[in-house]
Design a protein around this nucleic acid. Sequence first.
DNA 1: AACTAGCTACGATGATCGTCGTAATTATTG
DNA 2: CAATAATTACGACGATCATCGTAGCTAGTT
Lengths: 102, 102
Amino acid sequence: MDTEWLPQPDPAEIEIGKVLHALADPIRLQIVRLLDERGGGSCTSLPEVPVKPSTVSHHLRTLREAGVVASMVQGNARKSVLRDADLETRFPGLLTAILRAT
Amino acid sequence: MDTEWLPQPDPAEIEIGKVLHALADPIRLQIVRLLDERGGGSCTSLPEVPVKPSTVSHHLRTLREAGVVASMVQGNARKSVLRDADLETRFPGLLTAILRAT
DNA sequence: AACTAGCTACGATGATCGTCGTAATTATTG
DNA sequence: CAATAATTACGACGATCATCGTAGCTAGTT
């Protein structure tokens, strides 16, 4: 199946500043909520996001480089998932508080 | 003493998006940490912040409009304090998680 | 091999924003 | 009243960034 992961920061190297910057954009926050609800997603599997797939790809990259999501490659399909466990370890309560907000 | 408060959003109207945007800037995050440590501050009482007082004023305004800080006027002196209680009510655990981060 | 689908890298553009200097305001002090 | 200190409003500039279109890549399919 040749599943590989795109490069991402180690849990200990996730920086609060980069995480906050990544979550500060409303589109990225919406993407994070959708990934949380559905357990993952990709550029073309989030049609309610009001930007083009190339822009979604850019946002997923930003989220991945910040340590918020992890992206796996399976053949020609990709899937991004929230790194909720890593974030909970690194910044306890942070992601929960944000996702719980109205 | 004629203490008055500058306009600020009600606790129920604080938006997570604006709070995250306000905290995403590294200078503003530093200001928030200093206000937390010292219980308050003003434009000229935060010399370790590497920007000019006029810029600190701008950041304090951004933080106040987002609902992160409250600013009081006493004569010619002003003092801004963290709205930690309001934030804890509105987004439980959020500020604590951020301030606890290394 | 050719073709299709999914995704991204790249370049460009327009908007937002962080920063600063200056001027103006306000209140306290001499 | 004059002077000083604290703070902000304003205008301007430079940088960052969100967005898009297109081209190119990879893997699976026919």
